[in-house]
Write a protein that binds this DNA or RNA. Structure first.
Lengths: 206, 206
DNA sequence: TAGATTGTTAATCGATTAACAATC
DNA sequence: TAGATTGTTAATCGATTAACAATC
């Protein structure tokens, strides 16, 4: 591959991936740029432009073959293998995340789950037994995990983030409302439904 | 106010709002554009530019007063009041959403919770009793709710979306992996941690 | 052939960034 | 005064969009 993708292109390609994955599950074999546009709110011309930068994947008058386009995008995003992630927090949110098919569908495997609560340790969430929080550093190092998901209360988020980073994690998904201080080379993605909602409301109200 | 904000500006302003809300909780009184940049990954010049389009809110050499900047951004986004939303699904994810302070902190009130499971109806999640799904249409209409949150399995998401839209909802937050077909004037926000993760991994791997 | 949809061009607009004077 | 940080300019880059020939 020539250059690194821009942030915008990589973000859009991964959204196309989600639409294609779901469309395939629904039994569709072909999809047009206009249909992808309807589901992603990305302009159809932009979609064709993003794709045509890497090859002629479509057929004029027909659209894109879903299977083959999925393969192409996975190749471009270099995301064909399995990825191991660690989940901290086995409460309601942690359980919901571990039981969701949303990660498995994209080759993402929850390889370790931690909690400080002795009542939760040993129980199973998703398919994994919950380990005691004290095992975090050793387990993350041993499994070479670089992605951590924080499903803990805001008050515990910074401690968990620091411990994950010390163990080698470089990408954090933060489901608490806390702001996290981490080293420069660690990427933090904070999920914030309330923020998205305020922004959606603005466009509804105006 | 003169014009409608662009999508980009509105999205960024609501992220600044989140950072300011948390910084205030941590006892800070002032904040610089560089600090907001560290937490949002938005360039500091861009932040100053976004804000200075609406007034001179900062003090040179000092930064921004958090309380007053919060007020200004809320005014710009017209998001000072309370907003009622409906939650469909009282499973683990629904409970996690209802119990999270993340909505209440921003003036968003979960005004109704629905589930089809008779075992869940009548129980309390967050502060609200779970109503039977059959009450959805009447309750959403009566309370003039325009925002719905889907915390249901993918197989039920389309039905719930259609029922919410029929009852008057115009903004949907979809926490399932399903693709939703809705009328043009309804905004769908699909939360997709797996997609974000693939995209984060790309930049880690290259 | 007729209809549909891609791939591509060209034009415009907003985002991004560095740099720095103003000023607290 | 010295240091810090805003507000603003100017230059560049990527995103967006309409339009349409190519072609399935």
């Amino acid at each position: 591959m020539a250059d690194r993708l821009t942030v915008g292109v990589a973000a859009r390609l991964s959204r196309y991936l989600q639409v294609l994955t779901q469309a395939r599950k629904m039994g569709k074999e072909r999809i047009s740029s206009q249909e992808i546009s309807d589901y992603t709110n990305v302009n159809a011309t932009q979609i064709r432009r993003d794709l045509s930068g890497f090859g002629k994947f479509g057929k004029r008058g027909v659209g894109y073959n879903i299977d083959s386009l999925l393969g192409e995008i996975r190749r471009i995003l270099r995301t064909q293998g399995q990825h191991n992630i660690a989940l901290v927090g086995a409460g309601r949110l942690g359980e919901a995340i571990a039981s969701s098919p949303i990660f498995a569908e994209h080759g993402i495997n929850i390889a370790a789950v931690f909690d400080t609560d002795p009542d939760k340790v040993g129980r199973t969430v998703g398919n994994m037994p919950v380990s005691d929080y004290s095992q975090l550093n050793a387990a993350v190092r041993e499994k070479n995990i670089i992605v951590g998901v924080l499903a803990v209360p805001a008050a515990s988020a910074q401690v968990a983030a620091t411990d994950l980073v010390d163990a080698g994690v470089r990408i954090l998904f933060n489901y608490s409302e806390a702001l996290l201080d981490v080293p420069q080379d660690v990427a933090v993605h904070t999920s914030n439904p309330a923020v998205e909602l305020l922004y959606a409301l603005y466009f509804h109200l105006t």
